[in-house]
């Protein structure tokens, strides 16, 4: 492997470790969806108006919605698919 390719790979790896959710060639649908969901929850928590919007719709307190959303970030799309090795 040439050094240029190595370099690109190293850069990608660096990027992936630094920015959570950065995709790679082998990202599967599940991983992608999990990242999407976690990003969504984080964004809703960060924007107080969206959090309020959800809380009003479901008739819950904002604190409860926020708590539940962080809880859901743990496994937003169910258990992962088994890896075929």
């Amino acid at each position: 492997m040439s050094s240029a390719v190595m370099n690109v790979n190293a850069q990608l790896e660096h990027l992936q470790s630094k920015h959570v959710g950065t995709g790679h060639a082998d990202t599967n649908k599940f991983e992608w969806a999990v990242n999407q969901h976690r990003d969504t929850y984080a964004s809703i928590i960060g924007h107080s108006s969206m959090l309020a919007y959800t809380a009003v719709a479901e008739n819950e307190s904002i604190g409860r919605k926020k708590f539940e959303m962080i809880e859901k970030m743990l496994q937003p799309c169910g258990p992962p698919v088994a890896k075929e090795d």
Binding site: L74, G78, P80, A82
Partner: peptide
């Protein structure tokens, strides 16, 4: 804090339960 690395890897869902 909650660590999700195990839950992300375990297809049985056990790690998620035990997180």
């Amino acid at each position: 804090e909650v660590d999700y690395s195990d839950a992300d890897q375990d297809p049985t869902g056990e790690a998620f339960q035990n997180a």
